[in-house]
Design a protein around this nucleic acid. Structure first.
Lengths: 216, 216
DNA sequence: GCGGAGCTCAATCCTTTGATTGATGCCGGA
DNA sequence: TCCGGCATCAATCAAAGGATTGAGCTCCGC
């Protein structure tokens, strides 16, 4: 917005969380909640509103929607100049969540357990174009820099995630539109990086190391 | 409470979620939020307040606390007469979450994506001592009744646990002093009972069904 | 522009896993 | 006492997974 106030779009499929973010941020001076979206698709639409400066974006949108938060983030930031900043606010902080989101152009990444002050600070940072990362996320990014070995690429993480879901290489290749050779190739790299020698052990190691979400 | 209003205790480690529940429920007539707790331990303490009729309990409390929501629920309901009802409000709806919570004496189980009206209705039900289950949770409980299967023998569970640890059949046979044939035999039975066709899928299914520890 | 890293694929070979069938002994309830 | 479930093992075969080697492509930083 042009008058110094910051226009916000809240995108989350949980009514309770939307109400919480609204309650926390409305009490802050200088913030105006312009709109709310319950789906990722709707968030992309509403983000086109010129009054929106920052989008608070969840990553998981329930089974109902085909698009996830990272994809919505990519769609919004792809509009280039004039597009609002996207601040991801989610529950999970595994590489499987953070990397795609940051790659999609998110300006910040916060966890939902962040205290209100941190949230407000992050929104102001995002509005100013500065990035705002939760401490644990920043830590792991730095750790990743330091030890390039134990870090899986986005694609490798994606494949490993499907392995954790119990899919065979065949099914994974179909899911990702790859050949089985490529899937195997990715897995070989994953095994090497994680120091294991079977898919089940890799899933276990990745789960322990926070590389994939524990839930699945 | 004695005057018809319903006293609430909100227990969740996320400030945003607490604010959201407060915002949603405060706007309902007849509800009074008596207190908030950011940890499971604190929730147990505060639940002793005679003004609390219903506890809105999350299941996951961040890494900081040793007690989880199910344990807190058990501690609260164990006080018997006069103890408040516990309504679990969480994000996850896997058997591994729901079963312990209900076993611990929760009066209801809601998901965080529930609309405000459903939330309010569930709180009133809980206050009156009636159970309130989210549709998906109720469905799965009934499904569970109908299909008595899914019960693994002790030995089968033992083998599956080692599979979840990433061991090969060879390693499992050594670990348990069996032949590989026996290990395979157990796994075939496990696959049949779980309705899957690979070790990774079996691990996933067992984890989702609470048959093995989520930690490993 | 060069080199490295990541993503993609192919072919080969060997190991592991899973399916199938069949068999033995033990134990506990009808 | 007999039947059924559980645990144990064997043999065999087909399918999936994993190791190895090699290679073309793009993108990015130096």
């Amino acid at each position: 917005m042009t008058d110094g106030t910051i226009g916000l779009l809240i995108a989350d499929d949980h009514p309770v969380v939307r109400a919480g973010l609204r309650a926390v941020l409305e009490s802050e001076p200088g913030f105006v909640i312009v709109a709310e979206a319950a789906t990722a698709e709707r968030a992309v639409e509403l983000a086109a509103d010129p009054g929106v400066d920052v989008v608070l974006m969840d990553l998981q949108f329930g089974a109902g929607s085909a698009m996830n938060g990272a994809q919505a983030t990519a769609a919004i930031t792809a509009r280039g100049a004039g597009a609002p900043r996207v601040l991801v606010v989610t529950t999970y902080d595994t590489d499987a969540d953070t990397l795609p989101a940051l790659e999609a152009g998110a300006t910040g990444y916060l966890l939902k357990d962040a205290p209100p002050e941190e949230l407000a600070r992050a929104v102001r940072s995002a509005a100013a174009g500065r990035s705002a990362l939760a401490a644990t996320v920043a830590d792991r990014l730095l750790e990743r820099m330091r030890t390039p070995a134990a870090a899986l690429s986005v694609r490798e993480t994606e494949v490993l995630g499907l392995v954790a879901d119990g899919l065979t290489n065949q099914q994974i290749s179909r899911e990702l539109h790859l050949s089985q050779a490529t899937v195997k190739s990715h897995l070989v790299h994953v095994y090497t990086k994680l120091g294991v020698e079977s898919r089940t052990a890799a899933v276990r190691a990745a789960r322990a190391g926070g590389l994939i979400r524990r839930g699945s």
